[in-house]
Nucleic acid binder design. Structure first.
Lengths: 117, 117
DNA sequence: CCAATTGTGTACTATGTAGTACACAGTACG
DNA sequence: CGTACTGTGTACTACATAGTACACAATTGG
């Protein structure tokens, strides 16, 4: 389902069609890992990389890093830290929201962002 | 700062004063770990236990498991899963809230909980 | 054609995680 | 008093994480 590796490969190959510098080797070089490793990651022969590597990969492929982390089964450490600082508050909020539809959460996000509440 | 081990020891010793069954050995027995391990955990000679063990410990010591997990530098996996399912939405919400005072977050929690929004 | 580049296979490694197993010395109390 | 329980020290283990290093065959492009 998740398909972290498949997603990365598809995204990279899409970019590669327009720009030859998106070869596996060159992307690996930019994000600072060995080509053989990125190859295995894309074919899901190994689990997804560390958070840091995923973020560099997201940047290189111009995708949202929170989304890519989620595909890898991870949550950004800065979000985790925010929760850890006020565990009861955030735990209750998130558990309350997790049963609600997207549009309800979105409305809340907007309310908070616009500050008109 | 964190003091996960110190907190656990303090909490256990407090309970132990009123109830001798809160000895390190007996608590270790109840949560299913070796006494020597719990001893090391309390003295912070080893990192905090796994999420599962922390939750059993929280139950045994009657403390909030989200709080105890937070002290261990962790976030409950069910919260993480909720975030992973809608990464953009939750990421934005949490990042927005992390700069706000407790009372603002609390107000939001209440609004959502009471459903009068 | 051949030189460079591409993706991949195999082998190996260092560090972290999450404990167990057991012996030991001190203390408590019936 | 001794026995049963207390906390702790030492040694060891299995598995996961997060990669590196290097050789190889296939493909591509000037």
């Amino acid at each position: 389902m998740g398909g972290f590796g498949q997603f990365v490969r598809a995204r990279r190959e899409k970019l590669q069609k327009e720009d030859r510098s998106y070869s596996l080797r060159q992307v690996a070089g930019r994000i600072g890992v060995e080509p053989s490793y990125l190859s295995k990651v894309e074919r899901e022969q190994v689990p997804p990389p560390s958070e840091e590597t995923i973020i560099r990969l997201a940047t290189a492929l111009e995708v949202d890093s929170d989304v890519l982390l989620a595909m890898a089964g991870k949550v950004s450490s800065d979000l985790q830290e925010a929760i850890r600082r006020r565990p009861r508050l955030f735990a209750e909020l998130i558990r309350e929201l997790k049963g609600m539809p997207d549009r309800a959460v979105l409305r809340l996000v907007r309310e908070v962002r616009d500050g008109d509440w």
